[in-house]
Every structure is written in structure tokens, then in C-alpha cells.
Design a protein around this nucleic acid. Structure first.
Lengths: 208, 208
DNA sequence: TCCCACCCTGTCCTTCGGTCCAATATTCGG
DNA sequence: CCGAATATTGGACCGAAGGACAGGGTGGGA
């Protein structure tokens, strides 16, 4: 029968855990190490000493591990995932959210705090140096002028600054930008930044 | 009402999809681009032209995107995730598995082929190393609420959307955001996005 | 108890961003 | 020569963004 364990060290107050999983048991790291096995669900607090090692051990034994943190950050999230944990959430998340996490990881999914997700995933691809032609493809759909405007805007410049840079009117910048939005199918400059920020701009030719 | 779309280009045979999601509709990329929006579930075949761009657009519109491939590999999986897809599976996966994927991603999880999972997660952590530590440090200067606002804004959301997300008024969002700007010493949300997505966008204008 | 940090909200105001309606000049291919 | 695409600018309009005020509430520490 599958167990459901909460691993903690101090005497953390865990009303939400209790509420989310009434059938779960609270235990110490040592007990979890000894008892948990295949199919068991184990929640590990990130304030436990060597929680990473513990998570790695448990997940290696095919336990389903989620890490909970009072101070979630993307680095810790990545570490948790690297240690085999399949979930990473705030320790004080609502019972509904905890159950959602449980549902996801029980179905072979990964669950990470939504706010961290973008960074965890987003930075991955860049760091890997993966070549995505997304950028060049999208940019190649633009005219030279539109491209220049788009890149300047993506660098965080205001329309006014772009206008000065390219020595045109702010009005013209808006016109080009409108075309860029249409062609790249984005709503506003923020989405443009996010789209262009997905990849480092490798070799931008000044035109061709 | 949330739609359920399959995006494909050729006339792929999709008996398993049909079986898994009888209520789903098959459509072309253009249709998906036009119709899909918030909360919709969209399955994109990786043999579609510019599937990455499509996935990025859809996920940016808060659609729930999964990518299906006839020849899954970790590289493509990473690309899919980088484009905002939350699921990556084999196109010929069993209906049960497809439904599992759907269940997971509908609950804010991410689902990647188990065989690829280790590779994806592993390479992520290694590649990141200590790089994204800067952000954590800068973010740690913020209060919980400010951080939540900052991250949401950095994800490209408008103040209105952030307000809805956090269940506060738009005014409060502005207040927090003002504090964020002060603490991180940035002028506006554009600079914030650039800081948090820490991208070496060489601000080169294609200028002549 | 008082102070301070945090969280939430309000109004007024200015600037910026984006889209709608135009118009004009140039270049380039059929 | 004629249309199509590109580059440029104008004006009007409206919503979003952000600062300058001015409060309200909580909880913890001196």
C-alpha cells in the first residue's frame, strides 16, 4: 500500500498539509529514508538538512517526491528537479494547490511554481545553446526598417529613443511597430521583448 | 467555453487522438492562431511549419499547449518547453497516456516523455550552473508581494491581468510595481523584463 | 505602547503606447 | 506604364502606465 509522508525536521506547523492529505503521516528524514519505497508519495521540506540527498535517494527508489519551500526560488526548484523531485511548491500553498501538485506528479508530470516555471524552462534552452531558428524565421518576415525598430524596442528603448536612433519621427516608429506586431502576431512591445528574448540574437546582419 | 484543438498540416491519421478526446476539433495552424485563446487546449504536431512560433504565440495567449512528435527527442522537447508548451509526447501515444498528459498540463504541470525527462531536467541544471543566481539576489530584495507582481509583469502580463491573478486592485499592482522599480533601480516594466530575462540582447540597430 | 514594514486602496495628473483614419515619395517587377 | 511593397509622416483618439499625493489596515519588535 502506498504511503503518504511529510518529511520535516523542526516542528513546522502544517495545517494545510493535514487538510490536503488527511491520511498522510509526518516523519523525520531518517524514517522516510528507511520506510519510503516504490510508489510512495513523499513531501520534503527544503529546510531539512541535505534535503537534496534525501530526495535523490527516495526518487531513486521510485518514490514520488515533491519539495516544499518557505522561500521558493528558481534555483532551488532546479535543484529539486535535478534531485529527482517531481514537484516544487510553496510550503504554505493552499490545500487545493497541494492536491493539484499531487495529482500532477502522480501522473508522471512535473509541477513547479507557475511564477518560476517561465524562468526554469525559459533559461534552459538558452543555456543549452540550443539553436532555434525561431528568431531568424520571425525576423526574416520583417522589412529592414521594421527589423531595426523591433530590435531597438526589444532592447528596451522607448519609441522616442528609437526615433532618435533611426532619425525618424516617433510617428513612423509607431507605424513600423504596428507592422511588426501584425507580422509577428504579438499584442504589444512586451510580448515582442519576450519573443525576442527567448534566444540570443546570434548574427544580426545589418541587412542584405 | 474552452476549445480543444489539434493542429496539423497534412492529413495525419489520428485515431488515438479521436479516441482520447472525442470532443476535440482538428484544424490548421492559421485557424488555431485565430481562434485559440485563454484556457483552450491546443495540441500541435511538430511536423507543422513553424510549430515553435505557433506554440509560443498560443501559450503567450494563455492557451494550454502540448507538442506531439512522431520522432521525439530531448532537443525538440526542450524547444517545445522553451516555446511555452507544457506537454511533449509521442504523437502515437496511447489514448490513456494522452489523457494523462492532458490531465497534468491542465493542472499547471508539465509533462515530458519519461525517457526524456532525466535528460531534460539534468541538462537544465547543469547548463544553468550558478548563472541565474543574480536574479534571485535581486529578487530577494523584494517583499513576497512585490516579487509576485514583478514575476508576473516579467511574464508579459498587464497590470490589469496581474491584478486579477493576485486578486487585488490594479492600483495596488501599481504601488507594488513602483516599489519594485525603486528597489531594482529600473525605469519601467520594459527594463524589468530585460533584467529578469537577463538577455544579452545586443542592442544593435540594423542601421546603415 | 509606539514605531515600522508590509499590504491594500483611492484620486488626480501626465506621459507613453497603439490603432484608426488618412497622405506622399520611392523602388521594383511585370 | 502600372500596381505592389516599402518608407515616411500627419492627426485624432483611447487606454495603459506610472508618479504624486493621501490615506486605510495588520503584525512584530523596541
Amino acid at each position: 500500500m502506498t504511503q503518504h509522508l511529510f518529511v520535516t525536521q523542526g516542528n513546522d506547523d502544517i495545517p494545510r498539509w493535514r487538510e490536503a492529505f488527511p491520511q498522510a503521516r509526518v516523519c523525520r528524514p531518517a524514517q522516510a529514508r528507511a520506510q519510503a519505497g516504490h510508489g510512495d508519495h513523499v513531501w520534503v521540506m527544503s529546510n531539512v538538512d541535505d534535503w537534496g540527498v534525501l530526495a535523490a535517494n527516495l526518487s531513486r527508489r521510485n518514490a514520488i517526491v515533491a519539495v516544499l519551500s518557505y522561500t521558493p526560488d528558481s534555483e532551488e526548484a532546479l535543484q529539486a528537479l535535478a534531485c529527482g523531485a517531481r514537484g516544487y511548491a510553496h510550503a504554505l500553498a493552499s490545500p487545493e494547490m497541494l492536491r493539484q501538485v499531487q495529482l500532477v506528479i502522480a501522473n508522471q508530470g512535473i509541477w513547479v511554481l507557475p511564477e518560476l516555471m517561465a524562468k526554469v524552462v525559459g533559461s534552459t534552452f538558452r543555456a543549452l545553446g540550443g539553436e532555434s531558428r525561431v528568431q531568424e524565421e520571425t525576423l526574416s518576415a520583417l522589412t529592414q526598417r521594421e527589423r531595426a525598430v523591433a530590435l531597438s524596442v526589444a532592447a528596451g528603448n522607448s519609441n522616442k529613443v528609437v526615433a532618435r536612433e533611426l532619425d525618424i519621427t516617433e510617428r513612423t516608429v509607431k507605424a513600423h511597430l504596428g507592422a511588426v506586431f501584425r507580422k509577428l502576431q504579438v499584442r504589444d512591445r512586451m510580448q515582442l521583448i519576450l519573443m525576442l528574448s527567448k534566444q540570443p540574437i546570434a548574427a544580426m546582419d545589418g541587412g542584405e
